[in-house]
Design a protein around this nucleic acid. Structure first.
Length: 689
DNA sequence: CCCACTTTTCTTTTT
DNA sequence: GAAAAGTGGG
């Protein structure tokens, strides 16, 4: 296979990097993933590297799957044995492999965010600290941040009363996780790091195994991932990382942009390659993206260029409300549907809740769409219920799943019986499951439960197991009896779970419940997303690594993008990068929009200013549709009457609430805003009903 | 113990 | 303004 034919000069240089650490600074659309893929091909074919000596870390499981497929089509020989996946999934696999050297079992379970929250809530409730004094959300975030920085529950130095309490909760949290043989997401990294750090033999073993290490999206790695990488490269320094500092958007998850900014200091004698040619977007789109991101201080700086055509201008429009924004979007979208396929169109927003208005509008127009994210599939109640059975069967120490399934669906085990079981377990110092088995003689419902679990235990294939759970518990039958729209969609979800399980067993040699759980526990929505004949909706975070012909970014208002919480935390630069990521997803055409009022609960509205990022756009590349309204009239919409009557009050996006004092020169209004008066053209008003 | 009704809680982005 | 959690009568 010829590398030269498929790569440009910059890419080829990076791909054929000889040895030692390398940093590839790759701009958006410059063939980042391509470089990693071809680098692996190069190692296999020209350097005779064995597949099992390669470790490739991707940002999502989906990216790993795609890379595997691409590799398979590029090299004739088998690529089996290459370690490929996210940091989390690779650590999980290795922790199972070396379980005997840890304090966990091979079958430890992985707690999702919900489980983690519940656990912390319970700890706070059980302690004598008032629930009101400590916010579980804040506690969780603090613990997570500590773990990301590899600070354990004993090392942590409290610096005031509150952190003193958090330290106690942190300790109890870890104790309970261990009791349940469970790890949270951060533990996967932390515990694996600890294993590497404390066990010389394993460290040596893995250093020899993973001779060549490749990491995609390096700008979004956190300190613990960085330390793992360091530990794995003590013997062989072949660390090949690819990333773009301008696309670092996971700071909230502990990702540290300094990992990429300081790479050259962290890994001495490294080589840096820059990829600056963009193959994706038009000149216009690239110009807008570069102009925006230039306002960031914290960046390495690179200049993207393209041989693509100039392209259409970027369209900017505004609306009074979220609903109106959606309506306008649909109108523009319909025009694009004549030129592009639905699957190549993206609608992106900052927060999941924003999908609602767009969805309603698409539904009304009967335009097919898919949503990525939101209420995640594996977080849904019915899915978690059924998977809790699987979890408990795999791991009897998992008390969280135990309590979840004990009386789900209803089998007559209430508070009294549950407490009886808990008492028994405590008295005899046995597990809840053992206590249940002992009580089965006295309590019929418990006996039913124990028998159910015992019969399910016999089943070794995950697809058959799930079918059996659904049948033997009568879960679907009960839903059928309820017969509401909600129960119907729950049944559909269960069916989807079933077909996903079938697929899992079909496409691999893996079929055990244990293997299935590892995969599912780390599965995200984007992992199961595929391009269908539908318009795509997702958060800006989820668009990372994807590209579309037409991109709409909606809701670009101050407080939304940048989000007010980020502004408060002084993280505007990361928000700007998020905006940049969104812009650079577009190949041909980009639409930007914002709305000026927003529901703020109990029926009131709050006005929103256009995002400060919009002021950074280069005017020459923008076509402003301020005058565009659904009715086709030419009225501007910066100011709006705030109720149905002929009110004298208006809301202005910049000046706020004002009172109309007079009409001057026929077409101008004299308005008083909090002391100052301004003359504004009547055309600004929207005469809606 | 269960069902139906009332009250409280939502927390930006996600592995 | 929806979903989870709490409450009280059957």
């Amino acid at each position: 296979m010829s590398l030269k034919k498929n790569l440009n000069e910059e890419q080829e240089k990076a791909v054929t990097h000889t040895s030692g650490p390398a940093l590839v600074l790759a701009g958006a659309g410059s063939g980042k993933t391509r470089v990693i893929t071809y680098r692996i091909v190069y190692l296999l074919e020209q350097k005779d590297v064995k597949p099992y000596n390669i470790l490739a870390v991707t940002f999502t499981n989906k990216a790993a799957d795609e890379m595997k497929e691409r590799l398979y089509s590029l090299v004739r020989r088998s690529t089996k044995g290459i370690w490929m996946g996210t940091f989390h999934s690779i650590c999980a696999r290795l922790l199972r492999e070396f379980a005997s050297c840890t304090t966990y079992s091979r079958n430890f379970i992985i707690y999702d965010t919900q489980d983690q929250h519940n656990l912390i809530k319970n700890i706070i409730r059980d302690s004598d600290i008032g629930e009101k004094t400590l916010d579980f959300y804040y506690v969780h975030r603090t613990i997570s941040n500590l773990k990301n920085r590899l600070i354990d529950e004993y090392e942590f130095k409290p610096y005031n009363y509150k952190t003193e309490l958090i330290k106690n909760i942190y300790q109890e949290y870890q104790t309970r996780l261990k009791e349940n043989d469970a790890m949270d997401f951060d533990d996967l990294l932390f515990n694996f790091y600890t294993l590497l750090d404390s066990n010389t033999e394993i460290r040596k073993n893995l250093n020899d195994r993973f001779k060549y290490k490749l990491v995609d999206e390096y700008q979004d790695t956190n300190p613990s991932q960085y330390q793992i990488l360091k530990k794995l490269s003590e013997r062989y320094k072949d660390v090949f990382v690819v990333g773009d500092d301008d696309q670092s958007i996971y700071g909230f998850r502990g990702a540290d942009i300094n990992n990429i900014l300081d790479f050259e200091d962290d890994f001495p004698n490294s080589k840096v390659y820059k990829l600056e040619r963009n193959y994706r977007s038009t000149k216009r789109i690239l110009e807008v993206a570069s102009t925006v991101v230039k306002n960031n201080r914290l960046r390495k700086g690179k200049t993207l260029w393209t041989k693509e055509e100039e392209g259409e201008k970027i369209t900017l429009f505004s609306a009074f409300s979220e609903k109106e924004e959606a309506a306008k979007l649909i109108k523009l979208l319909k025009k694009e549907l004549g030129k592009y396929n639905k699957k190549d169109i993206l609608i992106a927003y900052r927060t999941n809740a924003q999908s609602r208005a767009i969805e309603d509008a698409l539904l009304k127009e009967e335009i097919p769409y898919v949503i990525v994210g939101g209420v995640k599939f594996y977080q849904r109640k019915e899915i978690k219920d059924i998977l809790s059975y699987v979890k408990f069967i795999v791991n009897k120490k998992d008390t969280v799943s135990f309590f979840r399934i004990l009386n789900t669906p209803r089998r007559g085990i209430g508070k009294i019986t549950r407490e009886k079981t808990e008492m028994k377990a405590k008295e005899e110092n046995i597990s809840l499951w053992e206590a249940s088995c002992k009580l089965a003689g006295q309590e019929q419902p418990i006996a039913d439960f124990v028998n159910l679990i015992k019969s399910l235990e016999e089943i070794k294939r995950i697809d058959e197991l799930i079918v059996a759970i659904v049948e033997k518990t009568g879960y679907v039958d009960i839903l059928k009896e309820t017969d509401t729209i909600e129960s119907e969609s729950r049944i559909e979800n269960i069916q989807e779970l079933l077909s996903a399980a079938y697929e899992f067993t079909e496409n691999s040699e893996k079929y055990s419940p244990e293997e299935y759980l590892t995969e599912v526990g780390l599965k995200t929505d984007i992992d199961s997303w595929s391009r269908t004949d539908s318009v795509n909706l997702m958060t800006l975070h989820n668009t990372k690594g994807l590209e579309f012909d037409v991109v709409f970014i909606v809701g670009i208002g101050e407080g939304l993008l940048p989000h007010y919480r980020s502004i408060k935390e002084g993280n505007t630069e990361e928000e700007r990068r998020l905006f940049y990521v969104g812009i650079t997803r577009a190949r041909k055409k980009l639409f930007l929009s914002y709305f000026l009022t927003h529901g703020a609960g109990w029926g009131s509205t709050r006005s929103i200013l256009p995002s400060s990022f919009l002021k950074e756009l280069p005017p020459g590349a923008i076509e402003n549709l301020e005058d565009y309204t659904p009715g086709g009239n030419e009225k501007k919409q910066y100011i709006l009457r705030d109720n149905k009557n002929d009110s004298k009050w208006v809301n202005h996006p910049i000046f706020g609430r004002g009172e109309i004092l007079d009409v001057v020169d026929g077409d101008k209004l004299l308005i008083s805003f909090n002391g100052t008066t301004k003359k504004i053209k009547r055309r600004f008003f929207d005469e809606r009903s």
